[in-house]
Design a protein around this nucleic acid. Sequence first.
DNA 1: TACATACAC
DNA 2: CATGGTGTATGTA
Length: 427
Amino acid sequence: SYGSVFTHAKAGMENVDRERVARVVYDATVGTPHHENETRKERATSKRIAAMKAKGQGMTKTEWETFGRRADERARAMERTRSGARKWLVVDMDGFYAACEELYDPALKSVPVGVAAGPSSVLTTANYVARKYGVRAAMPGFIAKKLCPDLVFVKPDFKKYVKASNESRGVFAQYNPDYIAGSLDEAYIEVTEYCEKHDTTMEAIAEEIRSKVKEATGGLTCSVGGGCSRRLAKVCSDFNKPNGQYILGTTRDDILKFLRDLPVRKMYGIGKTLERILNEFDIKTCGDLLAKRATMLALFTPKAFDFLLGIALGIGTECHPRETPEGSGGRKGVSKSETFKATADKAYLDAKMTELATEVALECQRLNLKGRMVAVKLKRSTFDVIQRQTTLAGPTNDVKTIVNSALRLMRNENSIGANMTLRLVGA
DNA sequence: TACATACAC
DNA sequence: CATGGTGTATGTA
């Protein structure tokens, strides 16, 4: 249920009193519009699960056998793409924003810290002291404060993070200038050639990177994962967090052993909803996922099945995204949105939308991009999201065209004001 | 194409 | 009292 959202974190929360966290979160949120909306979404997921179960129960023994055979065939086909020849490292900074703040104010190191714009907004990061209380990223400040009354709030200061990020990237570039920046605090580095040329190993490079990053940033620690694909390196980066590393062997046996007892939720792309769905079919670990591949094939879409089977077998894209047609494309959208105190004031909403749509157009111009579609996002005070979109005559980044389209889309929603107030608009 | 939802950071 | 912003992918109609 919703009460468990913050207790199934991906890292650093192993010794947290989960029951207490669940209770505090529940008590603080039950009855709020946000909680109501979460409950609504959960009911929709329940419905989806029920439909999947009904579909499964309606199938004959023969049909199941066919799915079993086809799932095995798909697994064999996927096995043929396994090579294990590449070496990928993923570097992930530990509690990045909070750690940056501690560099500038070392007194913060010994107290629980949450980085957030204000005490009632959402935390971008919590330091490891705060995490012991169950405080974590994406948690609203007022709940974090209930879990940990001594929590110190620090406002985000991106100049610090960009500086530290650039310093760490200087290190990554030594191993492969073509590293992939996942975000300010995360990078994917292919070190196949570097290992070959310098006769070294992922283990040794991981050690070097951790020490050099600490040096270059003036004391920040990071965790490193290694494996033969980006997917595996990524999970491994979390395995010995913080300030640790884990390099997974590249044989099929190494990989399947590692995955057997690994909770599915640890894998990139499996969030709380998919975790819940899989749990309903008694799938908790990647090993379970492999064992139940026939069920997955029968109940999920082909794309979702391939994604899940890839996770179960530990097979992912091994090549650099630059080597694939999709990977070489540029960005696909530009957007701006803002949350405010819920209102039905049309003049206010018009002004806000105009401002945001203008920023979008200017950003497109700055990036030298043109869009074929304008979409607006409206969030009601009840937290449900409405999206409206329109396709333009041709690609544009003209301010007037984009602003007018966005305004028209929003004004079409004539229930605004009548029985609806908004807490966010975006274009 | 239009819209909603999930996910990551 | 009270839950962010940006970008991507996918499912469904």
